[in-house]
């Protein structure tokens, strides 16, 4: 039990990661950094954040079968559509 307390819970690591990626995204935004690299970087971060929320916050990492992939499929579809649209204009 005491040994467990020495480490952060997985959900706390996820929280820290989500915050870190959020601050990078904000930094890109407030500095008006544009172009394919930055656009797809923040989109990638968003998709990663979404997957972390699905896996660790919604608990889908512990679910077997198709339900495990519900959020992943949604993120993949949305990410692809947004990428195709932005690719044409950047």
């Amino acid at each position: 039990m005491n040994q467990k307390r020495l480490f952060l819970r997985p959900c706390t690591w996820v929280y820290v990661t989500l915050m870190f990626l959020t601050f990078i995204t904000w930094f890109v935004g407030v500095n008006n950094l544009s172009g394919r690299f930055f656009a797809f970087m923040v989109l990638g971060f968003a998709l990663l954040k979404g997957q972390l929320i699905g896996d660790y916050f919604m608990g889908l990492k512990q679910v077997a079968g198709l339900w495990r992939w519900v959020i992943f499929i949604w993120l993949a579809l949305v990410g692809t559509l947004i990428s195709v649209a932005f690719w044409q204009t950047l």
């Binding site: 923040v42 989109l43 998709l47 979404g50 929320i53 916050f57 949305v78």
Partner: peptide, 15 residues
């Protein structure tokens, strides 16, 4: 929360 994770970069940041 999940939806906002996509909305934030899409509407406020990506350009």
């Amino acid at each position: 929360d999940l939806v906002w994770m996509v909305l934030f970069p899409l509407v406020y940041v990506m350009r």
